[in-house]
Amino acid sequence: MDQPVRELSYAEAIREAMAIALERDERVVVMGEDIGVYGGAFQVTGDLIERFGPDRIIDTPISELGGAGIAVGAAVTGLRPIFEFQFSDFATLAMEQIVNQAAKMRFMLGGSVSVPVVMRFPAGSGTGAAAQHSQSLEAWFGHVPGLKVVQPTTPEDAKGLLLAALEDPDPVMIFEHKLLYKTRGPVPEGAYTTPIGKAEIRRKGRDVTVVATGVMVSRALEAANELAAEGIEVEVIDLRTVRPIDTPAIVESVIRTHRLCIVHEAVKTLGIGAEISARIAESEAFDYLDAPIVRLGGAETPIPYNPDLEKAAVPQVPGIVAALRDLATGRR
């Protein structure tokens, strides 16, 4: 490569992916609340209204159930809608259409239709938005056969996974962590896809494997850097897709490191960490484990408003460092 890759923010990368899709495929429309002149609550759609007009960048009333259902109906009948929830929390108002309709339609109709709808969910805590605007509900969706669920953590993947979702014939739910929107990173020009269902090793290490999702990937990388100074080499896997989970990637890593920690922001109980632990326990990697698996996740509480409590409710770098150190040095 002769040219250095330019940097974009995570939000800009998503916007670029949408613009590419809108440009090349007349069937693509974007729907959501305040995504037109307002530019979206997190400025992800930004100026798309100016470039593609209100017939393709469609402001909906505040009607999540109806809006999501219209996107599903449009997807079944030939469009490629991208439906933006203003906050992932409001998906709770639309679960009927997502879970009973979008996820099951193809199955129920014996394969005679597909539902190529893409839904985007700004998720996660850290903004002081309190209990109804800060949740991480990706595991709920991951529990539903018929849906695919991705959680990009870099600008490059945010663009690539959105373009992959648009090429996918089935409903794809994209969980975007709000704290990531302004983070910057290299993003290739033009169209490309990031494969759905493939985890990515972000850092190689021999002593312990940490599987992280969402904003926890950067926190795990920070923790890994700190521990490297102590001679502990942490391998960081970015899960990227919640459904289907890339089990082989995790098994392969654990066979090398013999130790596993899973970190996610969503509440720990019945979460993605539990699922990954069970998969390792059921796999050939089980025999290689030198220590019990460690899960770090959100506390068993709604997200509090007070900033100190809010931080205490989800894993932070010092806690990750301590857990990984204990795990790697056999204190656990």
Partner: peptide, 27 residues
Amino acid sequence: YCRGRGGSMHIADVSKGNLGANGIVGG
């Protein structure tokens, strides 16, 4: 009113008959 757990969008005072603000439109 919510011991700092709720913030602006969840202020309530049940003793005065205020069952609470809501973060969900229509909630």
